[in-house]
Amino acid sequence: MTTRARSLTTIGFDADDTLWQNETFFRMTEERFHALVSDYAEGEDLSARLLEAEKRNLAAYGFGIKGFTLSMIETAVEVTNGEVPASVIGEILAAGREMLSHPVETLPRARETLEELTGDYRIVLITKGDLFDQERKLAQSGLGELFDAIEIVSSKTVETYTRIFAQHGDGPERGMMVGNSLRSDILPAIEAGGWGVYVPHDLTWALEHAEPPNGSPRFRELADLGGLPELVRAL
């Protein structure tokens, strides 16, 4: 790392839908779920009930595929008044297993951006979700050697970013979080005192939506990761 003084020394990266595809596979599986239980509930109502089940279950199951699979099963039981066939439950479980084994697809400019920044900045992966699944995706992505530290957390809060940027950097004031979720990646990082760089993805889970903090001097938005090196070096 260079020794010249600067305002930014540490960059955190979200993983799902920032470095590699994720929500696409959830949407595909949800469509499959709709087809399995379509005889029992309308599409919009089914999506709403599944989302409510996911909200209820976050505290118990956390974020990730396993919690999503259990929420699909719970919703299937609810909409069928407990009469969902065992074969449908089996299909839902199979869909969840397929998600857990799906090949990782890195997003455009992910590797190039990390390679360009590593060495000049401390690079930290900050992701939430199931520990085993996130470790699997990181290993398959081939990006692991580009990070100075890996943090797989249960939630992303102001306290999370304060701790991570203090532990792996020079505090949140000299840290930046890059991600596709305004609610999890951007807002709490800025509130902790850091920079937040929003890189939108075409698909974002409804529970991650939030209004952008356009009035914050530490908020930036990029069309893709390719513009990040120029942005951070201009700070």
Score class of each variant (00 low, 15 high):
L93D: 01
R4E: 10
L187N: 12
L182P: 03
Y198A: 08
A60H: 14
A110P: 03
H168S: 13
S7D: 12
A53T: 15
L187H: 08
V158M: 07
E145H: 13
G64N: 10
H168Q: 13
S184H: 07
P108V: 00
N57L: 08
T69G: 09
P200F: 12
M72F: 02
I89Q: 01
V158S: 03
A35R: 08
L225P: 08
E159P: 04
A189N: 11
D39N: 00
E151V: 04
E42R: 00
Y121W: 01
S155A: 14
R32H: 13
W20T: 06
Q167W: 09
L51W: 11
R6C: 03
A192K: 02
E31W: 09
V232W: 05
V158G: 06
E145D: 15
D185T: 09
L222F: 12
R218N: 13
D133L: 07
Q134A: 03
A94M: 11
A139K: 15
L138C: 07
P85C: 07
V104S: 02
Y198V: 06
G90H: 03
I73P: 05
G193M: 12
E211R: 08
K128D: 01
S7W: 06
E30R: 07
R218S: 14
G215N: 15
A41M: 05
I11K: 05
E221F: 06
A86W: 11
V178C: 04
D148E: 00
G67W: 08
E151W: 04
E54R: 09
I164P: 11
L107M: 11
G226Y: 07
P217C: 13
G193E: 13
V84K: 00
H209V: 10
I65G: 03
L19W: 12
P217D: 08
L117A: 04
